[in-house]
Nucleic acid binder design. Structure first.
Length: 592
RNA sequence: GGUCCGGUAGCUCAGUUGGAUAGAGCAACAGAUUUCUAAUCUGUCGGCCAUAGGUUCGAAUCCUAUCCGGAUCACCA
């Protein structure tokens, strides 16, 4: 039981005794540092029951608690805030509960009985992953970890957009200029190679457009008439007809891309339980549309296209099926959602997709609801904002994309350079050093991105992101390494951490308080799909610990009982840092 | 133009269901070291919480309007 639950129960008893009411409005908050106490009751809401001033009410409740609850050591009332101080024994008890819980703060996967599907990443196969995908992948993976820690049965899925005109563009350029080039021959990752041909297509296409415009053709017409685009469209048609040559090339080039993606995903540390390919799902959903037509939820225009009118809901009319009977994006998403629900009966379906698709998901949910699918309420669009760079906005159209592989490599390099400048890690073997540089570089990147509220547009500065001071991933990693180092030394001296019965000091109580919050933070982060909550929590804990560590000795402490108790506390803090950063997908080293 | 999201220190960001004097980090400045790992810690400086009204014991937080920035409103995905 956490502190708030405990004290809340006691105050409820108090309210019953004093005011003879059940379900009194109780509002708690952490006691601010400038006041004495551990937890604070806001007295204002209770004044309606007590019919007294906030100060009098607070005092009244405080006196009752002090008289009736042995764990309450003292209280004070400041301007209608009742600050309650709990006994050291209470905190000692909390610590021993934390210690006895082997997987403190984390539920075992599947114990909640709820199935949650998280779709994230969802790349196109015509170019490598970029900075925007990094935010997507980190968010998706972390949210999945957090939900799993809440005991849900989490299924991570990736929906790969492997078909369409964009792939045909790469394929066409490869046919024109490739001369049989392969990733092996070029010595290049497959996704990068295919991306290069996409760029080549774009160059050719633009050149043809300007040539046409020079002969007096309008820009719009030129875009439609350029031979390159006509060829690409022709290729798409052939693909849909199952033309063997086109399909074979498509398979080959997509294969290259997947090999490349696998490397990137592995480096990022993300994974999937199931991968869906759009080439298999793009025809889904037509039955649902027909069903909607029968029910009269949708309507057909003269040209045969199918629409839904959402103007009554403040939205527009939305196309669901083209006049030629083919699917659009929405049709497909209706189909996959339906298929997934039939298959898994999920209690929640989370789409990690950029905020440029907010409207799409609003419509998706609404359409499903109008069709009578109750589970449309289980859909949650985890929307995130763009990642900007100091030099300007990161948009693929503007050609300033930061490639995901390059970025990660750059982070690792910076970690290496900084370590060497500071003369760290000298006594550590080469291969372990390599591992550490990777851990630090990626930890910096992940923490920097995940600590920001997803829906906000954020600024990522590669130069400043590896700052080993302050609110950063490396700071957490370093703190963990120090804790482990002290514990190793203790082990050498045959010291076994234990909670014991020594009365903890104020500093220790402060840390136990922080630790005891962890399960609640995990629960809240799960409910709000928010890795940022975890990040903020673990940073606060780490900071608190660092000040403590700086001026309290542990191994030099002469009282053995206190020493062992501090070691125990140390161990638990290390464990929580490791667990919490794990929820963010950040690895934490034993030494660095 | 309609809809959605954002605007908090010079910079990057926190700020719980409305709660006490709005917080961190970076940067700047001033300190602390024979370390249990100083990649650390302490202190100072820094604010019309975009603006104006409203709701109430109490507003960065809720409501209304306005300003600024972004996204979106395709027979693209």
């Amino acid at each position: 039981m956490n502190t708030e639950q405990f004290i809340s129960q006691k105050v409820a008893e108090c309210a019953k005794a004093l005011y003879n009411t059940e379900g009194a409005p109780l509002q708690f908050q952490k006691t601010r540092k400038e006041f004495e106490g551990d937890i604070t009751l806001v007295a204002f809401p209770l004044t309606k029951l007590s019919r007294k001033s906030p100060e009098q009410t607070g005092t009244e409740v405080g006196e009752w608690l002090k008289a009736n609850v042995p764990q309450v050591e003292a209280f004070n009332v400041v301007k209608g805030f009742l600050n309650i101080k709990l006994t050291k024994d209470f905190w000692l008890q909390q610590l021993s509960e934390i210690v006895s819980d082997k997987s403190f703060g984390v539920q075992q996967k599947g114990t909640s009985g709820k199935t949650v599907m998280v779709e994230y990443s969802s790349p196109n196969t015509n170019k490598p992953l970029h900075l925007g995908h990094i935010r997507n992948n980190l968010l998706g993976y972390s949210v999945a970890q957090i939900l799993e820690a809440n005991g849900h049965n989490v299924i991570k899925v990736n929906l790969v957009n492997d078909r369409g005109i964009h792939i045909c563009k790469s394929m066409l350029a490869w046919k024109k200029f490739g001369n049989g080039e392969t990733p092996q021959l070029a010595g290049k990752k497959g996704d990068h190679l295919v991306g290069d041909y996409y760029v080549k297509f774009d160059k050719l296409y633009k050149q043809q457009i300007s040539e046409l415009m020079a002969t007096g053709v309008s820009e719009d017409d030129a875009k439609k008439q350029a031979p390159a685009i006509i060829e690409a469209q022709d290729m798409l048609l052939k693909w849909e007809q199952g033309d063997k040559e086109v399909v074979d090339l498509w398979k080959t080039m997509n294969g290259w891309v997947y090999e490349g993606f696998d490397v990137t995903y592995k480096q990022l540390g993300v994974s999937f339980d199931k991968i869906y390919y759009e080439s298999n799902t793009y025809l889904l959903g037509k039955e649902i549309v027909n069903d909607g037509l029968k029910k009269g939820v949708f309507f057909k225009k003269e040209d045969g296209s199918v629409w839904i009118d959402l103007t009554a809901d403040g939205l527009d009319q939305k196309l669901l099926l083209r006049s030629d009977g083919t699917s659009v994006y929405m049709t497909q998403d209706l189909g996959t959602a339906h298929q997934r629900f039939e298959e898994y009966k999920f209690g929640e379906l989370i789409y990690v997709v950029g905020n440029e698709q907010n409207y799409h998901f609003q419509v998706l949910k609404l359409v499903l609801k109008k069709l009578g699918y109750d589970w449309s309420d289980y859909i949650y669009h985890l929307s995130y904002g763009m990642v900007e760079l100091p030099e300007g906005k990161m948009k693929s159209r503007e050609g300033t994309v930061v490639d995901a592989d390059d970025l990660m490599e750059g982070m690792i390099t910076t970690a290496r350079e900084t370590s060497q400048e500071l003369g760290k890690l000298a006594g550590i073997p080469q291969d372990e050093q390599q591992q550490l540089f990777r851990m630090i570089g990626l930890g910096a990147l992940k923490y920097f991105i995940l600590k920001v509220d997803p829906k906000k547009t954020m600024l990522f500065d590669p130069k400043e992101s590896i700052d080993f001071n302050g609110n950063t991933g490396p700071f957490l990693q370093y703190t963990h390494a120090r804790i482990r180092s002290v514990l190793r030394k203790a082990q050498e001296q045959n010291l076994q951490p234990t909670t014991g019965t020594a009365v903890p000091g104020e500093r220790e109580v402060e840390l136990v308080k922080n630790l005891a919050d962890f399960p609640q933070v995990v629960a809240q982060a799960g409910a709000e799909h928010s890795p940022a909550l975890i990040a903020n929590y673990v940073y606060e804990l780490t900071k608190e610990f660092n000040t403590y560590y700086h001026d309290v000795s542990i191994l030099k402490e002469e009282n053995t009982e206190i020493k062992l108790q501090r070691l125990e506390l140390l161990q638990q803090i290390g464990n929580v840092i490791k667990t919490a950063t794990g929820l963010l997908g950040i690895e934490v080293p034993e030494r660095m």
